[in-house]
Amino acid sequence: MEFIAEKIGMSRTVGATSVAVTLLKIKDMKVVEAAEGKALVAYNAGKGMNKAVEGQQKKYELSKEFNKFVTLDIANAQVGDLDLSTLAEGMKVKTTLKTKGRGFAGVIKRHNFAGGPAAHGSRFHRAPGSIGNCEFPGRVQKGRKMPGQYGNTNVTCQNSVVSFDAESNILVLKGSIPGANGTLARVKVIS
């Protein structure tokens, strides 16, 4: 079972052991087409609107706020509001979401290189240093860690479920998940 959720932020629990938790709000979702094991689901994501979306809304008789469509793995889906009861029974979930984009980053930020001394005339600060040998092999080895785009990629992680509030649709996961607050996540119940 898959769902679309928005990352809200982190908090902690109080109790014998205090646990760091992440809160996710499950989006209002409407199943518009159900096939075997899969369903086309509409949800709200910002104000994005174009003629294609308008046409889809007309076809499925949706209100204006349902402006995004996604295919999710949902068993026994029925057209209409999506049933969230599996979340309440879920023990573990996989969440997939975009990590924070850091742009073109150097090797210290991107690959945890140590860097050189800041002072005493070392002349070696944040550069990657040597990237290989000499005439043999005469090329740079594949997989060499170098500067480049860091972040803004999809990352999946597993977390156990602490609680699910069916009233406000808040899913509470143990530990952290990648991405900035407000990022949309794909939540998959795995057990």
Binding site: I8, G9, M10, S11, V14, L23, S168, I170, V172
Partner: peptide, 18 residues
């Protein structure tokens, strides 16, 4: 100010503690 969902989540846990 904290997000209202986070505030509600924390409020529910703290409630009842004297």
């Amino acid at each position: 100010m904290k997000n209202r969902y986070i505030a509600a989540f924390e409020q529910a846990q703290v409630a009842g503690k004297d």
